[in-house]
Nucleic acid binder design. Structure first.
Length: 440
RNA sequence: GGGGGAGUACCAGAGCGGUCAAAUGGGGCAGACUGUAAAUCUGUUGGCACAGCCUUCGGAGGUUCGAAUCCUUCCUCCCCCA
């Protein structure tokens, strides 16, 4: 169902470079990739049964890697995920039981298949591995003897992630477990190097220290003529300094059950101009020429937001489907377009339902509408659209609530005649938050 | 082991007997302007039966007409000396 092309880029690294996806790489990486088909891996924490868009950069790196004719490996960190990476802030990790781990692994693989080709009979077929498989039976004694022996504590302490924790103001310190993390991850690299001839590890820039522990371990254990490489991409940021990939409601997931295709589409559509120009290079496969052209078009008529649309379309189709995109676009058109109350009333029921598929639902007993119902009560007690009445009143006063695309005030009463198709009510909280209330 | 300091709303951080639902900044949300950008300006940011009332200033007690502010005790953190 997907078509993959295996034309070798003249240079994988150059491709990533113009896309702004390279933060750092070890010397010799480019030469290695030019020399022969190479295998590379990135690690993914199996903490949930879905990827979120924070994972997307690494996945796109693997995607470009496979397109360039190399072999991508996605490593599920079943073992490392239990330890907790001290790079960046880390909370306690939960130990996943094996059934959950396997379940998550399967779900992740299904999502990864939309990007990577696991089925081809080409030699650069993508692979999925789980470090739990080789770590679970590795005894502590064997590990410290065979692996721990090759790196000095001095070396491990020189890593930024460790130094930062040791000198932390709050004095929280660092457990031995966390300290060991880099060694365990380093061993993954060694293992893949030996068993899969995997010579490169890629990841976010925060992984540099962990990755080079791996390359160092390979050299120390296997000999100085053995060479493994590291390549990292910059941390994805937003122009306003906020954290990428988060919305008010949390992570943006690839799983349509967790983040509807509509919400997913909206996330990308809402990127600022600066971000859209950056993201389109990272998250789509559009060529340099196509992107340059879009950027120029966008500059000509910024209000049309061709960049955001191209970005949102491309990713929504890849992650979901052409049909999901069409519905998301239609819903967006109705909710944000010129169309107003009339357009809304004209929709037939099935269109209305499918269009608002991804819009949060609330329901209310039909009986409550036989008498005119106070708007504040309606927004809180009956539908939970607002967490408190004060909050609802506040926003009503601020002119921030609409019903079926019409502004309402604090004194508005709701009656059965406000229902579209005698059944639905479209509530708008602020500019971008919609709720479809169904009378039952 | 000895000595000192601190714990305040989402975060940072004032307040140190009443005028404190608690300054200020950041963040969040909303409004205006726009392009469902950015920047800017404005409003708002504990709850409710909302010109009033209730619950909040690490926990538990106490003093007082009245406590975030004073006392006792417990917990947690930080700093200095050994």
């Amino acid at each position: 169902m997907h078509k993959f092309h295996f034309m070798l880029y003249t240079n994988f690294v150059d491709e990533l470079r113009w896309r702004g996806m390279i933060h750092d790489l070890t010397p010799g990486t480019e030469e290695q990739l030019k020399k022969e088909m190479t295998a590379a891996y990135v690690g993914i924490d199996p903490t949930a049964d879905s990827l979120h868009i924070g994972h997307l950069v690494s996945i796109m790196m693997l995607k470009h890697f496979q397109i360039a004719g190399h072999k991508p490996i996605a490593l599920i960190g079943g073992a490392t995920g239990m330890i907790g990476d001290p790079s960046g802030k880390s909370q306690e990790r939960n130990l996943l039981d094996e059934p959950t781990l396997r379940h998550n692994q399967e779900c992740l693989k299904a999502q990864l298949s939309r990007f990577l080709d696991f089925e081809t009979d080409q030699p650069n077929k993508a692979e999925l591995v789980n470090n739990y498989d080789w770590m679970k039976d590795f005894s502590f004694l064997a590990f410290i003897r065979d692996i721990g022996k090759h790196l000095t504590v001095n070396y491990m302490m020189s890593k930024d992630s460790v130094k930062k924790r040791l000198s932390a103001e709050d004095g929280s310190g660092m457990s031995f477990t966390e300290f060991t993390y880099q060694l365990v991850q380093g061993y993954d690299f060694l293992h893949l190097y030996q068993h899969k001839n995997c010579k490169l590890q890629m990841g976010g820039s925060d992984q540099w220290g962990n990755i080079t522990t791996g390359t160092e371990l390979i050299r120390r254990k296997l000999g100085s003529e053995e060479n493994a490489y590291a390549l990292t991409c910059p941390l994805i940021t937003k122009a306003d300094g906020g954290k990428f990939g988060k919305t008010e409601t949390g992570n943006v997931w690839l799983d349509p059950e967790k983040t509807s295709p509509y919400a997913f589409y909206q996330f990308w559509l809402n990127c600022s101009d600066d971000d859209a120009a950056k993201y389109i290079k990272i998250f789509t496969l559009l060529s340099r020429e196509e992107i340059d052209k879009l950027i120029e078009e966008h500059a000509q008529a910024p209000h049309l937001r061709v960049l955001q649309k191209a970005l949102a379309n491309d990713i929504t189709v890849r992650v979901h489907s052409q049909e999901d995109l069409a519905l998301a676009e239609e819903a967006s058109q109705i909710l944000f377009g010129k169309g107003t109350t009339e357009a809304l009333y004209k929709l037939d029921e099935s269109t209305l339902l499918s269009v608002f598929e991804g819009v949060p639902r609330a329901s209310i007993g039909r009986l409550h509408l036989t008498e005119p119902l106070d708007i504040t009560e309606f927004l809180t007690t009956y539908t939970n659209i607002f967490p408190s009445k004060s909050d609802a009143r506040r926003m009503l006063k601020d002119n921030g609530v609409s019903l079926n695309k019409m502004k309402v005030t604090e004194n508005t009463k709701i009656t059965a005649s406000d229902l579209m198709k005698s059944k639905y009510l479209l509530v708008q909280k602020g500019k971008k938050n919609y709720y479809l209330v169904v009378a039952e």
